[in-house]
Design a protein around this nucleic acid. Structure first.
Lengths: 146, 146
DNA sequence: TTGATATTGAAAACCATTTTCAATATGTAG
DNA sequence: CTACATATTGAAAATGGTTTTCAATATCAA
């Protein structure tokens, strides 16, 4: 876990006239130490164990807050759940998603990103964000399918 | 409108032991003649005009059916609506989406697609489908922002 | 310490989408 | 052409992830 994530959150909160709370800090810590691509429900279950008092709604609210604060990325995959992942400073990556077992593999490709900028430029478009997902079969599922 | 879309649908239906209905044909025709990226509700409203009897649920069901039949692509953008677009034979394209005015611009880029295949290959992954969306400001909104 | 108000948990509300159900339409067998 | 098994329909209710409401509580500036 990045040393100053909690701190980063309080700075954001202070800047917005919002308040630091124990719940927000607890949720953030569990969020960071948990794996990536968590849905709100998954996070809720994980948070429940060490902190049974925390409510469902607070997890949802905090997750949206983290996204606003730039600490999390919010993504909707095709399964209908909104998933969040902790956003390390300037690491952006995309996803390979197995349609059979649900595995999510991350990748980065600078050449693709560069080409995206080309496309945007040609369309007078300023890219703020992007999303690239490749859906298909992962290596394991391809083997099993035979 | 492609001459044999209705025909293509009935072939699919027959093959699946399903039935052709006037509603399905009517919805398909309105779907094809309407613009791209329609949500179910948008299509419902358009279908209502010439065919007031058609129900909401039938539009939803038919849209899913068209996706199964390969006549439509189902996409979830970040606005929370599932949108459908008529799928011309082998035209796949991606999207630039303006976060301000909602404009959706389509583009194709073979080099990006080729690089996607490279990434997949390196991960022993077989791509069935992909999704590339660039979110940002379109040319018009960039001008207005100044 | 106090007061204004942001936040919380629980439950209810939302809202796009799906399902249920009785009535109706379709396609096949006779 | 007719009858029947059953797929499909429209309307309304149900679903399910997410958001909102509300009274109680916590935070923070003064």
């Amino acid at each position: 876990m990045r040393k100053n994530a909690v701190e980063q959150l309080s700075e954001y909160l202070a800047g917005q006239g919002l308040r630091s709370t124990t719940q927000r800090d607890q949720i953030l810590q569990v969020f960071i130490s948990a794996g990536r691509h968590l849905s709100a429900e998954e996070l809720y279950l994980r948070v429940k164990k060490p902190h049974p008092g925390i409510g469902y709604a607070t997890v949802y609210r905090t997750l949206k807050l983290l996204a606003e604060a730039g600490l999390a990325d919010e993504r909707r995959f095709e399964d209908g759940f909104t998933r969040y992942e902790y956003k390390a400073s300037d690491d952006h990556h995309d996803h390979l998603i197995c349609t059979k077992c649900g595995a999510i593999i991350e990748f980065e490709n600078e050449r693709i990103e560069a080409l995206q900028q080309d496309v945007a430029r040609k369309n007078h478009f300023l890219v703020q964000n992007h999303k690239l997902e490749l859906y298909g079969l992962c290596g394991d599922c391809r083997k099993k399918n035979r």
